[in-house]
Amino acid sequence: MLHNTTMRSLLSSLTFSVWGWVFFSLLITSCVKEAQFDNNPEGNLDALWTIIDEHYCFLDYKKETIGVDWNIMRARYRQRLSKSMTNAQLFEVLAAMLSELRDGHVNLYAAHDVGRNWSWYEDYPRNFSQELQDAYLGTDYKIASSLKYRILPDNIGYVVCSSFQTALGDGNISEVLSYLSTCNGLILDMRENSGGSLTYAELLAQRFTNERRLVGYIAHKTGRGHADFSKPEPEYIEPSLGIRWQKRAVVLTNRHCYSATNTFIRDVKGCPLVTVMGDQTGGGSGMPFNSELPNGWSVRFSACPMYDAQMNQIEFGIQPDIQMALSEADRARGIDTLIEAARTLLNK
């Protein structure tokens, strides 16, 4: 009797285990996996091409504007591969393929180099001199996080914001605007600011509006197709609850204004008391994501497109209200043409 009971228990356990393994087998056959590419030159190129093909957000736009047909890139660059090529040679081929997109947010990172296309500012006049900026700031300027500021002799506030990488808080901005509150106007020098955090850019932009303003739209990819995008959602700038600038302001730009700074210029351009002066910004309106290749190299690419309030692309930059260039004659005399033009405008 005991023997029969034991046998029945054993059989029941076995039955249960068999069912368990049936479920397990079904699960294995329905595994949720992404296809893996081999870690060789072809596999890495295919992986990179696929990442951009499925995730990059400007493929159709770049085809329209600069004629980049991504569908033919894989075959074109595969011809440059060989099994005996070195890592450095492979890097060169892959970086060249990415460079076709002419996007500052598209990079390939390896231990020995960064693949890039910086033509968005390298192909244009700089309209900026660090020596001149240092001369205007002097040595007794104040620093509030990433903001350097002082009052110029004609009672114009001069603020340099060279990066949105460093943490910028409401308290920093309030201190700056409070210190400059007796000035007749404000020059906000954004030249050479190549971006950083959108949050800091938005905090600063909120100081230049007294009302909620529609400043643009943002979308994201919803699938692997080149045209799979979500409905663009409006973006608004809310007026800051802290000190807001109520006098005229001039924002200086050059081609090096990129990414979050490009978005900042989008946000403040059109504010009633703000004039954007200088050169067209560098662009970079796609929020970048990261991915990686089978050999471990990291890839950065534009993933979420942002537009202006009229749903225009701003990937290749934003035009200023007043086009202004730094003249060589002024530079030789130790004068920054843009700062002087801004002072003249604010003193009128």
């Binding site: 957000c57 949050t199 994201h220 919803t222 699938g223 979500s230």
Partner: peptide, 17 residues
């Protein structure tokens, strides 16, 4: 998140998809 949606869009801008 949606396929290419950033957490910035979901939680800072409040866009749901």
């Amino acid at each position: 998140p949606a396929y290419g949606q950033s957490y910035y869009e979901i939680f800072t801008l409040g866009n749901r998809d």
